[in-house]
Amino acid sequence: MKFVARFLIVLLLLVALASSAALSLGQETETYGMVVFLKGSEFFNWAYAGMVDAAARIGDHIEVQLLGPAEWDASLEAREIEQLTARGVDGILATAGDAETMNASIDGAIAAGIPVVLFDSDAPGSNRLAFAGTNNYNAGCSAGEAVADWHGDAARVGISTFPGPDHLARRVEGFEDCLAAAAPGAEIVQIVNDEGRVDGAETAITAMLQANPTINVIFASHGNPGPGAAAAVRNLGIVGEVDIMAFDFGLPVLELIENGEIRATVGQNPYLMGYMGMLLAFGARHETGVTAGSGFGPYATLIDTGVQILGPDDIDPFKNPPTFE
């Protein structure tokens, strides 16, 4: 009897679960918006693709939208968030073009009871519920470990970066730490200031390579110095003697990987940022009651979406980024 009773209870629970699932098919539509500071950009299209897939995974009743200015403008982005708040959407994914500019609109949405999850660029000063993006220290670390793999203790590295942005400093820090850990004999020979520009990187790296002929690896801490480093190596006629570790998968970087001038690049995972962001926002919208708090625990959460070191064999999927209207 006991067993039957138990069986019935389980069955009942299963029926309830199934019917709730069936009900969900006819459920009211839910709308989630993704707000970016440069709509149409390759990177954010990848993120949106992740969001679209996650929404489809949850159910047909989830609708998603990609919003944001076509030019780089954080204030327009803040206005989009305010409009989504006014419309009363069910959740917002946003990347902060400028944290200071956007804190108020993010807090406004939270105050209106709309879950806001940030991805890629965080706004830590706001009340956002969670952040899904690259942990820059870890990203630099992966690059450092890869370089240690390439050259071991013989690695002599020049780094191209520019002073100011915190996330670049973290990448360089992670690179240095993990290279030192994996290859104690390796050496960071010099760090140069590329002023954030491709042509600035070319000039600075050309000079650096002349002053330090021992350098056999260049690490680019952001998207622009990679092609600049390739041009510098070309300038000096030492193609093949210096390995370049670029950052991100912009088209010129992919082309240079394909023809062998850049050995690899640190690929972030914007798709996963959008995917995780969507799940987090949905989770916050539908609290289970199992745990207290925001739907995914009592604390705001930071999720590292990780990086992958991309070589010539890995880049094919990135040549045709998803596009959206």
């Binding site: 990177f43 030019e71 088209l251």
Partner: peptide, 15 residues
């Protein structure tokens, strides 16, 4: 700068 941004959506132009 705005027109340049809108024209490319932040993409590099290559090839």
């Amino acid at each position: 700068r705005g027109i340049a941004t809108v024209l490319t959506s932040g993409y590099f132009v290559s090839g």
